[in-house]
C-alpha cells in the first residue's frame, strides 16, 4: 500500500524583494510504501533538508503535492497543521531537540499532552516503548544529565509515542559517536521490522546502508536510487559508497 506519494515537487526560494531566486527542488517525484525504510543522501545544499521540511509540513512547496495516505498535506490549512503533525508524524533530529526544561519523560509526553491525553493513558503507552529503547530507568532525568545516545533514544521515544504513520529523521546519527550511532540504527531496523515507515536524511554511508532504499539527491533532483533487495549490509554499504563518489566527483546521470 502506498503511504506517501510525492509528485512534481518544486520549491523556489525568493529573496524578499524578488531579486534573487533559488531553485531548491526541481520536479521531485517518488512514492513510499507502507513499512519502508528510505534514506535520502546528498551533499549540503542539494535540497534534502528542503524536501524533508516539506514532507514534515513545516514548509510548503511552490508547486506539486505530497499525499500521506491519500491526503494532500500541502493543502492542509495552517490552523490544522500543528495537529496534523502531532498525530501523523514523528520527528528525530540531529541535535535531539529535547526541551531542556522538561525531564525525559515529560519530553516524551509532550505531543500526547498537547493532544489532551491524561497521565494514566500516557503512562500505559510509555512503558513498553521506554523498556524497548532501554531508557526506562532514566526517565526522570533531565536532558543535560544524560548522554547523546540516551537523548536520541528519548527523542525516538517521543516520535514513537504518538504511533505516527511516518517517522522523519534528520541526520539522526549526526551528533552521536559510532557506538551510539550503531545502537540507534539497529533500533531503527527493529522498529522498521515491526512495520514502522521511516524516512531518514543522512550524510552517513553507514546510516544509509541500513535503509531498504536510498535516494540520492543532487541539485534539487532525484539523481539515483538503490534498492537493497537481497543485498547484505556490506554489499549495500559498498554500493552506496560508490554512488556517492560518483555523485561528488560530478558524474552525470547515466543509469
Amino acid at each position: 500500500m502506498v503511504m506517501l506519494e510525492v509528485n512534481n515537487l518544486k520549491k523556489v526560494y525568493t529573496s524578499r524583494f524578488g531579486g534573487n531566486k533559488v531553485q531548491a527542488l526541481t520536479d521531485v517525484s517518488f512514492s513510499v510504501e507502507e513499512g519502508e525504510f528510505v534514506a535520502f543522501m546528498g551533499e549540503s545544499g542539494s535540497g534534502k533538508t528542503t524536501l524533508l521540511n516539506i514532507l514534515a509540513s513545516l514548509d510548503r512547496p511552490t508547486s506539486g503535492y505530497v499525499k500521506l495516505m491519500g491526503e494532500d498535506i500541502t493543502a492542509i490549512p495552517d490552523s490544522r497543521l500543528a495537529a496534523f503533525r502531532r498525530e501523523n508524524l514523528g520527528f528525530v533530529f540531529q541535535d535531539f531537540n529535547l526541551l531542556d526544561t522538561f525531564s525525559l519523560m515529560d519530553n516524551i509526553f509532550l505531543p500526547l499532552v498537547l493532544s489532551g491525553r491524561n497521565y494514566a493513558q500516557m503512562k500505559v503507552r510509555l512503558n513498553p516503548i521506554a523498556r524497548r529503547l532501554g531508557i526506562d530507568d532514566i526517565l526522570n532525568k533531565f536532558p543535560y544529565e544524560v548522554s547523546g545516545g540516551q537523548k536520541q533514544r528519548a527523542a525516538v521515544a517521543r516520535a514513537l509515542i504518538t504511533d505516527p504513520k511516518l517517522i522523519l529523521a534528520d541526520e539522526p546519527t549526526g551528533a552521536l559517536d559510532s557506538k551510539a550511532s550503531d545502537n540507534l540504527l539497529n533500533l531503527f531496523d527493529e522498529i522498521n521490522g515491526d512495520g514502522q515507515t521511516i524516512l531518514m536524511v543522512t550524510h552517513s554511508v553507514k546510516a544509509a546502508s541500513h535503509a531498504k532504499r536510498v535516494l540520492f539527491i543532487k541539485d534539487g533532483r532525484i539523481f539515483h536510487q538503490i534498492y537493497r533487495g537481497q543485498m547484505g549490509f556490506e554489499e549495500m554499504f559498498q554500493r552506496v559508497s560508490d554512488t556517492l563518489t560518483l555523485l561528488t566527483t560530478g558524474g552525470e546521470k547515466d543509469e
Binding site: 513545516l58 495552517d78 497543521l81 500543528a82 495537529a83 503533525r85 502531532r86 520527528f91 526541551l99
Partner: peptide
C-alpha cells in the same frame, strides 16, 4: 531555540 522545537513537536505557531 525553544520556540523552534515546540513547533516541530507539533505546536502551532499561534499556540
Amino acid at each position: 531555540e525553544r520556540f523552534k522545537i515546540m513547533q516541530q513537536v507539533g505546536l502551532s505557531h499561534k499556540e
